[in-house]
């Protein structure tokens, strides 16, 4: 099974399974990754599924929409150049092994 590894803000690594077509957020909430809240349920409206994408993977993700860009400005934790909303990262086979760092807070 393809996987995504979440790295918590305390450095703990948590690999989870991910299915083609679901978002990284959906995989995370399905498997109870604590650092992902996803209050809006994946509609790109709340900025509570914020992640920092591992540099090695950043360029391999699809470009962000204007909505996502605007929302990231309001994220609770600092916005960095590798900030994304995990609900907008659709998982595909070529993302097997994706590494996402969790911010220390989503609110």
């Amino acid at each position: 099974m393809p996987s995504i590894t979440f790295i918590h803000s305390d450095g703990r690594r948590q690999p989870i399974e991910a299915s083609e077509g679901e978002s990284a957020m959906q995989a995370a909430t399905r498997q109870d990754i604590n650092g992902i809240l996803a209050e809006c349920g994946g509609n790109a409206m709340c900025a509570t599924c914020h992640v920092y994408v591992d540099e090695a993977w950043l360029a391999r993700l699809p470009a962000m929409s204007d909505d996502e860009d605007a929302l990231l400005d309001g994220a609770a934790a600092d916005r960095l150049p590798n900030s994304r909303l995990s609900c907008q990262i659709k998982f595909a086979a070529d993302l097997d092994g994706l590494v996402l760092n969790l911010p220390d807070r989503q609110l």
């Binding site: 809240l37 996803a38 209050e39 809006c40 349920g41 994946g42 409206m45």
Partner: peptide, 23 residues
């Protein structure tokens, strides 16, 4: 409870635009 995904605010393009204010 992990409430993510409930449709109390709707879902999709018409999902409550004031949901953040409500929260």
């Amino acid at each position: 409870r992990r409430t993510s995904g409930h449709v109390g605010f709707g879902s999709g393009i018409h999902m409550c635009v004031g949901q953040l204010l409500a929260r």
